[in-house]
């Protein structure tokens, strides 16, 4: 019985059990994931869009799928919120170009001076993100 009460055996066994459970669940998650994330639609343009998203520290103010800062709106559904296939691209592009608004005592978004190609890539990335099947989160269109 002494072996059971030695801390290190309890630690090793719980570590092994739970790490294996995590790995098992991870393998399963990764196998079924293509049905949820629609990776068949991933294009080089979307991948470029993700890099633009990262290199401008968008999560420094916004959230994406709820992760990031809470200073500015959630953007995983911004494509749909701003019209989807009926003008979503046009709206987001115009919005990014109009920044900063310089309206007094209103939070300001910087001007990032993105090229037309970069804007298209970023919006393609946001559109792809809006199509991820994520248990219908966020609860509201407002984010």
């Amino acid at each position: 019985m002494k072996i059971l009460t030695k801390p290190k055996y309890i630690y090793y066994s719980s570590l092994i059990v739970f790490v294996f459970l995590l790995l098992g669940l991870t393998i399963h998650t990764m196998i079924v994931l293509p049905q949820q994330d629609h990776r068949e639609n991933l294009t080089p343009q979307i991948i470029q869009g993700k890099l633009i998203w990262e290199e401008h520290n968008c999560i420094g103010c916004h959230t994406l799928l709820g992760e990031g800062a809470y200073f500015a709106p959630e953007l995983s559904n911004v494509y749909e919120r701003r019209g989807g296939s009926h003008g979503g691209t046009y709206f987001i592009k115009a919005w990014l170009k109009a920044m900063p608004t310089n309206i007094p005592s209103r939070r300001q978004m910087p001007q990032f001076n993105l090229t037309e190609d970069e804007l298209n890539a970023l919006i393609a990335f946001l559109k792809w993100t809006s199509e991820i099947n994520n248990s219908s989160w966020p609860p509201s269109k407002k984010g």
Binding site: L25, H28, T29, V32, L33, Q36, D37, L65, G66, E67, I132, N133, N134, S135, W137, P138
Partner: peptide
């Protein structure tokens, strides 16, 4: 893992 687009059983786990 609840809302990032992976399997829903993570909500239980």
């Amino acid at each position: 893992y609840y809302w990032i687009g992976v399997s829903e059983y993570w909500q239980w786990v």
